[in-house]
Design a protein around this nucleic acid. Sequence first.
DNA 1: TCGACAATCACATGATCATGTGAGATCACT
DNA 2: AGTGATCTCACATGATCATGTGATTGTCGA
Lengths: 211, 211
Amino acid sequence: MASVAGIVEDNKKIRDLIQRYLDMQDDLSCPVAVDSVEEMIDYLEEHPAPDVILMDIQLPGMSGIKGIGLIKEKYPDIEIIMLTVYHDSHKIFKALRAGASGYLLKHTSLPEIKESILKLLDGGAPMSPQIARKVITHFQDDSAKKNAESDLTPREHDIVNGLVDGLSYKMIADRYDISIDTVRAHIRNIYKKLHVNSKAEVIAKSLKGEI
Amino acid sequence: MASVAGIVEDNKKIRDLIQRYLDMQDDLSCPVAVDSVEEMIDYLEEHPAPDVILMDIQLPGMSGIKGIGLIKEKYPDIEIIMLTVYHDSHKIFKALRAGASGYLLKHTSLPEIKESILKLLDGGAPMSPQIARKVITHFQDDSAKKNAESDLTPREHDIVNGLVDGLSYKMIADRYDISIDTVRAHIRNIYKKLHVNSKAEVIAKSLKGEI
DNA sequence: TCGACAATCACATGATCATGTGAGATCACT
DNA sequence: AGTGATCTCACATGATCATGTGATTGTCGA
C-alpha cells in the first residue's frame, strides 16, 4: 500500500518540486503541499492524516518547530521530518525534542528524501550525516564532564552488572558460579572503592555513568 | 589521496571480508585488520595511524567500548565507527560517549560501510537508521519525561526518588515525616505496579527512564 | 451515598544485606 | 624470595528489607 506524505514549505518552487517527485512514485502519494503550519492543520481537520509530513522550520506565521508540537499533540501517529537549511545545534535539538523523527538538510536529493520517508516509516530515523554528527557530539559533551574513573577490577564490574540487573547476592553467585561469600567480599571492596554502602548507590552510580 | 581504514573484529570471516572489500577500492586502503583492541594498539605504536577504525563491541580481552577510550586518548584524530550486532540503547550511548563517531549494525552492506567511512571522513556521522531512531528517542524522552506516564501517584514518586537517592526506609520516612510502616506500604504498592520486588529494580527502572 | 483509591499507620516473620574478621591461591612484578 | 593485587571462601551478627494481614481517614466521582 502506498504511503501518504504531506509537505509544509513556503518556497513554492521547492514545494512543488518535491510534491511532484513524491507523487509520481509508485509507493508514495503526496496529496497535500502547503506553505504554512496553519494551512496544514486546517487540512488535517478535513482529510485523512498522512503518514509523514516534511516540514520546513522557517515559515510564515507559526514556526515549524511550534507546528511539530501542535501536530504531534493532535495526531501523534504522524511522523515528521524536518527539511531545512538550518544546521545549528539549537534548532536541531529543539526540533527533535518537539517530536521530529528525522532531520534532513535541504540539499538532500529527491531520491534521498524518498528513501528517508520509507526508512522512517520502517522504524528508522533519517538524518543528514552532518546532523547526526552534531547529535553525537552533543552526547559526547554531555558526559565528558564527569569522568570519574573508578578502577574496578573486571570481576568487580561483573558484580556491579549483576546488581544493576537487580539480582540478589545469591543470584549473582549462581550467575558467576562462585560462593555467596565471595560475592559479599567483592561487594565490600566495591563499596570501599566507590565510597558507598548500599546496593542502591552502586546501581545509581552505574546507571548515571559514573562507573 | 586514498584514506586508510583499520578493523578490529574477532570474527575472522567478517573481518577478512570487509578488509578485502575496502582494500580493493580506489579511494581506500585497509592495511590492518586484527581481532582485539590490544593488537590494534600494538599496531598503532609501530605504524602510521589509519584515518578510521571499524570496531566491534564484543571482543576477546578488552571490550570495544573501552578500546574507544584508549585509542581516542592516544590518537584523538582517529575516527571510530562501531560495527556491531548490539542495538540496545545502553551500549549505543556508552559507545558514543566513549568517543565513537558512528554506529552501524552488522547487517550493513559492504558498499554502505564504504559510504559510511567516506561520509565520516567528510565530516558526517554514519548511523544505521534504527540507531538514529534510538538516539532521537533518547532526546525526546529526556525533555518530555515529566509527562512520561507511570501509574505511580505523586507520593509514590516521592518514595521512588528517595530510593534513587540511596536512602533507607527510615531515612525516607524522616525525609517526608511519615512512619516507616507507611514507607513500607508505599513501596509494596510501587512493587506491585512496576512488577518488581526489590529496591534495586525500582532504582534501575527509574534511572533508565522507565518510570 | 457508596465504592474506588490515596495516604496513613501497626505488628510480625523470614530473607537479604552490610560489615567485621580471617585466610588460602594465583599471578605479576621486584 | 617477597610484595601486592585479585579472586576465592568461611563464620558471625545486627540492620534492613520484602511480604502478609490488617485498619483508619479523606477525597472524588458515579
